[in-house]
Amino acid sequence: MTLQRQVIFWILTLAVTVLLLAIFRAVLLPFVAGFALAYMLDPLADRLQRTGIGRLGASLIILILFVLVFIVALMVIVPLLGQQLGEFVDRLPSYVARLQQLAVEQGGPLIDRLGGANALSDIQKSVGNLMSQGIAWMGTFLQGLWSGGQALLGIFSLLVVTPVVAFYMLVDWDRMVSTVDSWMPMRNRDTIRAIARDIDRAIAGFVRGQALVCLILGTFYAVALTLLGLNFGAMIGMTSGILSFIPYVGSLTGLILSMGVAIVQFWPDWTLIVATLGIFVFGQFVEGNILSPKLVGESVGLHPVWLMFALLAFGSLFGFVGLLMAVPLAAAIGVIARFALQQYLTSPLYRGTEPVIITPKVDLDA
């Protein structure tokens, strides 16, 4: 009966939490963003504390630096990327038409074998339908994210409330963790602490590490493509870097966009087209062999397919707030699922014997 009551209690707690998220999702964005920002910056605050700076002073220094970097980004990077994005959208139909023309000119013999003019018409119609469906889907997706993630007070609340929330959470972070830890059931406290450490390790390893990987890759792609002279190189590079948060998606998106623009812009100069391809091949080599093993690690446990599903699912349900919550929740669900699988494999339901309880090792030095 005790176990049954515990299960009912945690199920009800989960249901109430989901219900509250659904009710207050319109105003959650600045608070969730502030919490995520405080979580990412907490190790930096701890390092500053070890130098002799108090927690309040360390949090204040971090907040000022973050605001300065954010203002510079708004004044320099965002206008540039916005201008290139607008021009890219305007030129997209002409780029697609030019790619179709080049495909017809260079693939004439193959098209004749497939059926001549009828095959060409079918190919053009299929490409046109695919492009229109893709643009429509992207517009619907972005509109859903905007409407689902928009706070009641608009963007102003995100820009003003988020830093304030992050500052206060950063100041009281250790105290909050200790308080929540004291609420854990005493009988299962060691097990819960071990699971929480695994969740924190998974989230920290992916979010902090992958965010740094995205920043490095986005900067490299943007600078390299711009120096190469590729149109919209900064926008394509930064977009590829941001989307690299989802493994393989960012590099594939950037490769397709950059190669399409390079073929239209540089044809028939194969040297610059191959150089564009080489930039992404080199970027993927560095990411796979240096950046990801060093910054992210191999013990995160977030499969790319599970990560993509979590981002799409939570983004669809809760908008931009869902995107911020997707990775932590996906990591937490993964850790809990692995622990539940361990318990099942040692249970009478699987073994047909007396249950063997597995308690994760507690790292007392952590």
Rank of each mutant, 00 (worst) to 15 (best):
R193N: 12
A194I: 01
I195V: 12
V177D: 14
L230A: 02
F206R: 10
L228W: 01
Y168C: 10
M186H: 10
G229Y: 02
M176Q: 11
A194Y: 06
S178C: 13
R208Y: 00
T179Y: 14
W173F: 14
M169S: 13
I236Y: 01
R175Q: 14
L243R: 00
A196K: 08
I199R: 01
S182H: 10
G233N: 04
M169H: 05
L212Q: 10
Y221N: 02
L170D: 11
V177W: 14
M169L: 15
R201M: 04
R175L: 12
R197T: 09
G237W: 06
T179K: 14
L217F: 01
V180Y: 13
T226L: 09
D181Y: 10
T219H: 00
M235G: 07
W173Q: 08
A224C: 12
L243D: 07
D200M: 06
V180W: 14
A211V: 00
I236A: 05
G229C: 03
T226N: 11
F220T: 11
I192F: 12
G218F: 00
A196V: 06
V207R: 03
M238W: 07
M186F: 07
G233M: 02
I195S: 09
G233V: 06
I199N: 07
D181W: 07
D174N: 14
V207A: 07
L217Q: 12
A234K: 06
I195Y: 07
M186R: 14
R189E: 11
L227R: 13
A194N: 05
F232M: 07
S240W: 00
I195P: 15
T219D: 03
A202M: 09
P185K: 00
N231V: 02
I195A: 05
V223T: 12
S178D: 15
L170P: 14
F220A: 14
A202P: 14
G241N: 01
M186L: 15
R197F: 09
P185C: 08
M184N: 13
D174Y: 05
G209C: 06
N231T: 06
R201G: 08
D172N: 04
R197D: 11
L228I: 09
L212F: 03
I192S: 10
M176R: 13
F220Y: 12
V180H: 04
I192W: 10
D200F: 00
G233S: 06
Y221S: 01
T219W: 03
G229H: 05
T226D: 09
T239F: 01
F206C: 10
I236Q: 08
Q210P: 06
V213Y: 03
G205V: 02
S244F: 01
L228G: 09
D200T: 06
V180A: 15
A222V: 00
L227D: 09
C214G: 04
N188P: 09
N231F: 03
Q210Y: 04
A204F: 07
L212C: 05
R193A: 07
T239P: 10
T219I: 04
L225A: 08
F232L: 06
A234I: 08
G241E: 02
I203H: 02
L217M: 14
I199G: 09
D190V: 02
M235Q: 13
R208I: 01
A194R: 03
M176T: 11
G237V: 02
